[in-house]
Nucleic acid binder design. Structure first.
Lengths: 207, 207
DNA sequence: ATTTCAATACCCAGTACAGGGTATTTTTTT
DNA sequence: AAAAAAATACCCTGTACTGGGTATTGAAAT
């Protein structure tokens, strides 16, 4: 029997997943949290085998939470959830000792597969995330060029293309071109996702 | 002698503050961190009296960090730093047991005052943050109407107005109207800030 | 020495949203 | 029952950005 806790800051995602997993006989969702602090609280109070946790969460993020869990409850298996295929985040999560990772848009079947695999002592890594890239640190890293990275940082600060162009003393068209290129190579959809990606990336600006 | 650690996301702020405090004889900055995890690490390794910490930080935020510090090192004094006068955050920080809070644009004099006050066992709260408002919980809270709040959540999930209209079975124009009203009453500028606000607010969706 | 890549910059068409105004209906308050 | 607040929906104009395409320049790689 898998006794699962879901930690994810979007409650609707939690609700949806709970609903899907309710039909599974060998899985009980014993609790859910919207942040790392609540997750750790649940671990103190209930008997849990597997934790499915978002990487980016308020209060204590998935990486820090995983580290703390592996220290205090080493028998608990941890599977990371990520929105994007972010090498750095996944790498840090692996470093924190997680037992698997999934993209948030994974099929239910894949989720079940992952849960059962880690519950029985294995590891499960979403096939669409390429581990080889993770090993060759330098390779997966330099996706963005210097200008792109610089612009990404400004985007994360809430600047518009107009403002970024002024700051960098270039034409707006150039900034827009860089945005488009980033959206293309990161496989994002629109300005919103780029902003979200930029905000997410701040995790790694200091690494 | 005050043995201080500064924890703050923006390194430039840390550098600036370090420089200012270097001239103070009774204060030694024994370390600095850009995230909560590193902050806790420093506490393990060095002898520290006072921690000056940002509330919003990667990995482990200031509130969670404060709680953990007060558990493991109850003698260490914690002062919170906030960019804005954010009632909820300050309230949670107080709840976590912090000994004071400052706005980031405080004068050096105020910072020194705060450091010395808490180091000698007192509490120091930035006078421009009104505690009275903090008590009357209901007061500052119900700014957004139900529909607005619902739409804000969908915005935080990255939905466009078109998608939100579909989900809620209303016209796009209605969603756009709610967006405009929110931007107006929250004094924001544009879709980006609304998205950032929506993402920020997730701190409180679960409170 | 030549190819390749990054950075720069422009064009056009189309979408998403802001910022303004207004109007109708339903619900809540009084 | 009347007044106020919330939710709904539409108008128009302007801005920001996407999704295409293309071209020039300098630096790095081969």
């Amino acid at each position: 029997m898998i006794r699962l806790v879901i930690a994810e800051d979007h409650q609707s995602f939690v609700d949806g997943l709970r609903l899907l997993l309710d039909n599974e006989e060998n899985i009980t969702v014993v609790g859910s949290a919207n942040n790392g602090e609540d997750l750790l609280d649940i671990l103190e109070k209930k008997s849990v085998n597997v934790v499915l946790t978002d990487i980016k969460m308020p209060k204590i993020d998935g990486i820090a939470a995983c580290r703390l869990i592996k220290k205090s409850h080493p028998q608990v298996k941890v599977i990371a959830l990520t929105m994007f295929d972010q090498d750095d985040a996944v790498k840090q999560m692996l470093d924190a000792g997680c037992d698997g990772y999934l993209l948030k848009n994974s099929s239910l079947k894949l989720v079940l597969n992952a849960l059962e695999t880690v519950a029985s002592g294995g590891q499960f890594f979403d096939p669409t995330i390429c581990i080889d890239d993770l090993e060759t640190e330098s390779h997966g890293k330099q996706i963005l060029t210097n200008s792109e990275f610089e612009i990404l940082k400004l985007i994360s600060l809430g600047k518009t293309s107009r403002e970024i162009a002024d700051i960098r003393s270039t034409a707006i068209s150039t900034v827009e071109r860089h945005r488009k290129n980033m959206i293309g190579k990161l496989k994002l959809k629109g300005a919103n996702e780029l902003l979200r990606y930029a905000l997410d990336k701040k995790y790694n600006f200091d690494v």
